[in-house]
Amino acid sequence: MGKAGRVACIFTPYVLTIASLVCIILVGLGCTNASSSTLNNLYFLRLDLSDLSTGSATTSKIEDLLSEAHITSVSADEISQTIKKFQDDANIADFYDIGLWGYCKGDTTNGKDSITSCTEPKAQFYFNPSSVLGVSEEQLDKELGDDFPKIMKVYKAVSKWMFIAYLVAFIATAAQILVGIIAIFSRWGSCVTTIVSIVSFLFTLAASLTSTIMFSIAKGSLGSALKIYGVEVDLGKNIYAATWLAVVFSLAATIFWMFSTCCCSGRSPYGHKDRYNTRGGITAEKAPYTYEPIGAAHPPFGTPQPYTPQHGYSTSYPSPTHGNAPMNSNNQHSSAYEPFRHA
């Protein structure tokens, strides 16, 4: 197929790898820039406190929610006091969006959400509601039930693993783009790139699974507990679309990299043209200064057709005569060899 075919064979997985890297970068950039409307829509989880600020929760409603959540460690009056404290705190935002590196907070005006600020990106970030809301952990543990501290402990540990998985996926995918350049020249390069691509796919898949499962559980478990305060918990859509597109692109790139290890060698088919004849057999070239029978390839002048040379290097044919007398008794003579064949 040649070098041109090799480049065409590498082009598809190369583009897929770049697409996967772009999706991972979008996941990492979510909730990092308050002035970007595109990046503001990339979040794993949103805590909506807009109903909390309006004071729509009544005592009877709080009692019903406590019974539904099976929380007996706190009374409805204590919950009402906590809600009033949140309402009086001007630092409490209408909603909080949780990303990979940090979170953003914003206000809702006339049904329109606007981000006011975002935290500085931090490695191995996890959202701590007690520090954000200005409430002690003991109070949250008491008001949200016995399961809340267990959930937060698991969430903190899994968040660190999720961050590491996304970081390794990003590094492996970027390395895959660089290593993919050598895949243009040989199948060995494709083999090395395939190994890097497998690592990239596995960590991208692990990170996507971790984030999806973890925040889905958080929505189900925390949603019912925080509903007592009028807090709604919602999952983001765009960031999950980006992370799973990264998985799809990474898987497709890995398959095509594997395909390039056994196809599209990059060697020109014309490099062996002189060694093979048109029927695919091997034609032995005649080296200079070698012996060959004079009549092996062509019959002597005047020989009747068809002419079929005998096996070996001896050829029998009627010998020329001088008059009526034969030159030898057997009317045969041995094949003559020219001493040297000149190139």
Rank of each mutant, 00 (worst) to 15 (best):
F259K: 03
F301N: 12
G302R: 08
A90W: 03
S36P: 00
L65A: 15
G236R: 00
F148T: 02
T243R: 13
P339Y: 14
K156W: 08
T119F: 08
A90E: 15
F256G: 02
T38V: 09
A57C: 10
S130T: 15
V74T: 10
E338A: 11
V7K: 13
S159E: 02
S211E: 06
A218L: 09
F340W: 09
C23A: 13
C104E: 08
A246R: 05
L29G: 13
K150P: 01
S250Q: 04
G281L: 12
C191G: 07
I151W: 14
Q139V: 02
N277C: 12
P269A: 09
L245T: 13
L47V: 03
P304E: 07
N330D: 14
Y126S: 14
L226V: 01
L209N: 05
H342A: 12
L245I: 08
S268D: 11
K122N: 07
C262L: 08
V22A: 11
P306Y: 00
L66N: 02
T54Y: 10
D141I: 00
I228W: 08
V192C: 14
S329V: 08
S130G: 14
F256S: 03
Y270N: 14
L226D: 05
K153M: 07
P129G: 06
A123C: 07
A253W: 02
V132F: 00
V196P: 01
T17C: 11
S80W: 01
T315K: 10
G106E: 04
G111D: 07
G189M: 03
I255T: 02
D107H: 14
D97T: 01
L205E: 06
D94P: 00
D147I: 01
G111N: 09
A325G: 12
A165M: 10
R187Y: 03
C23L: 08
G223F: 00
N324D: 08
S130R: 00
G281N: 05
I217F: 02
I71V: 09
G223H: 02
I195G: 08
A284V: 06
H70K: 05
F163E: 03
P269W: 03
S50M: 02
V74Q: 09
Y289V: 12
N324I: 05
K153I: 01
I24C: 10
N328H: 13
T54A: 14
L251P: 01
K112F: 07
H298S: 09
S190G: 00
A287S: 13
G223P: 00
A297V: 06
